[in-house]
Design a protein around this nucleic acid. Sequence first.
RNA 1: GGGCCUGUAGCUCAAUGGUCAGAGCAGGGGACUCAUAAUCCCUUGGUUGGGGGUUCGAAUCCCUCCAGGCCUACCA
Length: 523
Amino acid sequence: MPDCTFFTTAIDYTNAAPHIGHAYEKVLTDVLARFERLCQRPVYFLTGVDQHGQKVQQSAEKEGLSPLEFAQQCTAKFLALWKTLGVEFDGWAATTHPLHKQTVQRILQNLFEAEQLYKQAHCGFYSVRQEQFLTDKERNEAGEFGPEWGQVVELEEENYYFRLSAHKEWLLRFIDTHEHFVIPAFRRLELRNAVERLSGDLCISRPKTRLSWGIELPFDPDFVTYVWFDALINYISFAGYLADPGSGLPNFKSLWPAKAHVIGKDILIPAHGVYWPIMLHAVGFSDEEIPTLLVHGWWNISGAKMSKSLGNAVDPAVLAERYGVSALRYYLMADIATGRDADFSEERLRMRYNDELANNVGNLLNRSLNMAHRYRQGILRKLPTTDADLLALSEGEAPEAVAAYKLAMEQYQVDTALDAAIHLARACNQLIESSAPWKLAKDPEQAERLDAVLYHLAESIRLVAILLSPVLPEAAHGILAQLNVSVAPLLADAVWGGLADGHLLGTPVPLFPRLEAPPAAAD
RNA sequence: GGGCCUGUAGCUCAAUGGUCAGAGCAGGGGACUCAUAAUCCCUUGGUUGGGGGUUCGAAUCCCUCCAGGCCUACCA
């Protein structure tokens, strides 16, 4: 058993600038990692970039750069975005890293020696322009390869193959016996059906004559390895698998198996659901060492799939600039159910931010602190109370919100978890209306009740801040600062009564300024 | 072609086969003044895509049709 919770994300291909989908996956994983820290569990968050392959090589040539230069330029954009969005990872998996190359080559060598790889000639139609073999799927209605492929020649080429189909029956049994291999459940069904139809082995090499930008096969220098074989291994190479002592990489045993590989639905089949478990199995990993796949959905725009080529890609850096990191992170976590698709809408981003963060939470903090200062110089009294409405909050709404939040987060349902936090804030606003502190303040006989109400508000807000902190680390810090709480948020502290008798609250400053008018039409 | 998902209020979504299908937002009406023109209360709004079937009971299970989407095919 690993002693550290290990999350990975897909590594992004350094061929184009990051879009909202990249940002979503990384923020989601960042939130899951931050939740582990909130629970005081050790966590290791690995993300990175996939820098090899034909597309990078081609794009680099177009720009007159070396593949490495091009990949590094693109990598810098991803790194800058993660910094902007507060995505704080522990390990950075860049596949051009020498230690990664070393591990990939060691695994290839082991598989070769175990006779899991073999060399075979393939004869087929090859597009010179696109530099790839064509299959029947590329044929047009007339059964021919269209002009978009340029010159097509019949070519025979030798390559190395991985004995994928030899492990098909094992994979089927594994899927059948491991209910939680794929989350959500319907994806597991989808995967199982795909595996049933699996036939043939996986070509894992490209001759250097047509692709040089990759990791060389250790047993045949005329070839580099296929992109997926290179990329998937990042999950173990950067976790320290087969690493030499003193490499600086983590201790593999402390991390593996990963709690979850967070990936998009597009790379479940075949890469992560077929190639990856079979690779691990072939290398000698036991069934208990195959990690769970947490498969998230897509942000669509106007219901259409996001695509750079359609010109509708949403630049997350622009959104962060326009609305702020908190608004963007909140929207990405609140407006999609993990595993499903959602429609991206700036209008909904503004709406949810204004309604839930500005009007509900932000204004609650502001009005509560304001009253505490106006009526009590900011000093809280922690006194026993018998008022039913206050007990309903301290013994009902608040602990129930924490429990619902925890349950949802453990099931990766971040949107549901956020609902629980917002619901608690809403209950506080209701308490303010029903107790009307401004009236209590005018009646000396109600002094104790006023103190109790103010305490209940501050205490509830403290809990809300703790619950929001994985999604909104900065804003949670801001809330706690205004409450004059200096300790870092912990879920263990999300229990009633944390604020001491005589606690002095900080000065109210509007925290989530409303996004007033929609900015002038984008672009 | 094969596989999978979705279809519930104007919008975004809930609802282990079991009270009258619920929230938030939007719409309508009202209240309040501590607050970021915020908040709170009440309220309008549904043939659960259509049609069959199983059941004492169906949004939920089965069949079928319709509509949209995804994977199958190197964009999270």
